[in-house]
Design a protein around this nucleic acid. Sequence first.
RNA 1: GCGGGCGUGGCGGAAUUGGUAGACGCAAGGGACUUAAAAUCCCUCGGCCGCAAGGUCAUGCCGGUUCGAUCCCGGCCGCCCGCACCA
Length: 865
Amino acid sequence: MTRYNPREAEPKWQAAWAEAGVDAAADPTQSDREKYYVLEMFPYPSGRIHVGHSRNYTMGDVVARYKRAKGFDVLHPMGWDAFGLPAENAARERGVHPRDWTLENIRVMRGQLQRLGLAIDWTREIATCEPDYYKHQQAIFLKLFERGLVVRKKAKVNWDPVDQTVLANEQVVDGRGWRSGAIVVQRELDQWFFKITDYADELLEGIETLDRWPDKVRLMQKNWIGKSRGARILFPFVEKDDARRFGCEGIEVFTTRPDTLFGASFLALAPDHAVTNALGAEDPSVESFQDYCRRTGVSEEEIEKAPKRGLDLGVKVRHPFDKDWELPVWTANFVLSTYGTGAIFGSPAGDQRDLDFARKYDLPVTPVVLPPNADPKTHKITDEAYTGDGTLYNSRFLDGLTTAEGIDRAIAKLEEVGLGEGATTYRLRDWLVSRQRYWGCPIPIIHCDNCGVVPVQEELLPVRLPDDVRFDKPGNPLDRHDGWRHVDCPECGAPARRETDTLDTFVCSSWYFLRFTSPWREDIPFDPEVAKAWMPVDQYVGGIEHAILHLLYARFFTRALRDAGLIDLPSGEPFAGLFTQGMVTHRTYRSDDGRWLGPNEVEERDGQTVEIATNKTVSVGQLEKMSKSKKNVVDLDAFIEDFGADAARWFVLSDSPPERDVEYTAEGVDGVWRFIQRVWALCDGHPQGAPSPSADVPACDGADLELRRTVHRAVKDVSDAIEGFRFNSAVASIHELVNEIRRHKGEGDAAIAARSEALGLMARLISPFMPHLAESCWERIGGEGLVATQGWPDYDPALITADSVTLPVQVNGKRRGEIVVARGAPSDAVEATALAEAGVARSLEGLTVRKVIVVPDRIVNIVAG
RNA sequence: GCGGGCGUGGCGGAAUUGGUAGACGCAAGGGACUUAAAAUCCCUCGGCCGCAAGGUCAUGCCGGUUCGAUCCCGGCCGCCCGCACCA
């Protein structure tokens, strides 16, 4: 009897799989088998992989191996989301070039993933920072530019004046740059945008077709797009002069409730609305109000708590339905310039914010919507607005209409008088893709004083990132790299400048799944025929943190590429199935002086947790997602060294449902180790010369037949669990199977044959989860070839349905006994057996049976009183 | 504030169309083997009553529908997530 040694077995089987080429994907255009594309969100090469990261890849791998065994042509590739800020931070902090840092991380992480035994087709590996990837991205950019989907417009950015760089929102902490600590200012820059809003409706409608996505993610996308229907209304200026002053005829507002127009009491503009800005330039009090709003605009918490504030701008507009009705125009801190038209009309009775504002500044409140069953004479609005539906009143020609009718009627009237129209707005904004950074895909554009914005000719792609850059000064090194920046204009030949912005890394991840289908094509981003055959991704696996942006951008990209004729994908949907997995969490430890401590820096002593180095007690903190910053990570290599890849794979799938977090515990790992050894011991103890696990089992009965039933039942349960992404249930079923096999004794031929079959099926059921152990078991019990090349086992339906069933018998809903009857036995016979059962008869003493419910093959319930 | 989700033993969780609540794992306790330990194996393991057979309560709380509710409906409490002054 030997112990199972993963350190020997795992490299051996990984070499055997490589030798047999089992992980290479077939060419789907040359195959008549069904395809299955399974993909995990590709990682950012941040350094090393820990056990937490491995959960996502293991889930994808289980699916890949299962589908492969089921006879699908499986595509299961891996790559690297290799551009991004951490590489530049490393460059600044440690003087290492972003490319070297990134490539080294990739090398390390690739090795880690390979040691995990993932069934990945490594010949398709891509890294987005390589010119042979971003070259195609630049070509795609130009294609979208040609089609008018790329535009340049001004946008506000967070500017760090010390680092001279643009900051992402999460890099602004309490109004200050996260690195420099300088106060961040808002700056307007010319920026590149993708016109994702052109696809707002299609992206919204497409959500309905994504029936294999979590409802939660679909809802989040829906809210993000935020479509709302209503009307755009022009309130003309009272003073003719104002039209000239502000360069427009009046104030345009967006509303979802044009039916409440007769309740209007004021207009409110965003503090940075064009008209507010114009007034701010001449009126110091307006300017100081704008300053106030800008200041509170920095911290979210303050915005939350900020009371409604406004300022009367002294401008007057006319009501669209009554030219003698004048309304004051205010500016208010709760109006967003980025939504709708940046202006609202306040109808205080029907909107809480408007009401708060009106009460504060003593503006009129006219109720116009009468709630159902309310009396118009007594209905009053005090501190609470009525936002529901009802009947319109105090509203002239709208009186008596319902809310819905009123909206239609008001819009019709607005159109009639030429002061408005039905309109739809979206919360979704265009996708800002400019980043004032070095380590990203260069935007293939040249700025010429004569010709303006000129695209780089396609044959000159890629526009390569220069390697000779320095990070010793703040700002974007590309801006200072004159040799790279200065080029001749492709159109007129005059001296011109390259665009120094690089693309948001979300662009890279918006089409990588297409590149995987034919990564060797140098001339085009991907082969349209091959991409058509593989797409869409059948199962995408990743974190919930990408529920909105990444998935929405990718959905936009596939539509844009489809419309540009690059891919034949009528639905435009890249991911047919999506699964969002939970994290691996681990306890956190902190020393007295606030240092985070790793799990191997502390130990338990007499019920206390102490730091090994100092012998001081440490405080045991919350469960947190494994992360480097909290030091609660368990490195994958160290884990594999101790317990093997299979243990890591099995652990992260055990116990918790895949969509929920799972807690890493040393005890749990010990349990996995014991289980692996038990499985191995079962196989190792199997007699040499026993029948092959694939041989037919002779007729058997008793315990042997029971074993066969159990095993075939397990085949069904595990298959169903994998199909349903319930890996924790699959793990439980395999545990039960192993327990049953262990209980089975008997040395006769039938017993040994039944055990051969059981162990063989066990190995195959285990193989998607613990592929190395499965191969070792399979080899030991005399299986032919590799488990990796076996088909998925079928169960014998006759074996999973027993001839007799055990039925619980309830009396008045309480279980009082159980009976064994033939499967499908007639109800009256079942009833008679149930009534005769001793325990049942006892509890029926003194009662009259009123009714007997027999649910065939499930339960009997006797109603008695 | 709006939207969504979740509450089951000491713990993670099963129970997939309303039909035996607590599968499986972890922890804990007891025992076997051993000079001892480790490893391994066996047994117990929701609460209460009971020597036991068995009874009884129990899936956050209150109520409803049903022969029967962890599951469906209404109300409440708690926790988590997303968006956040969206006109």
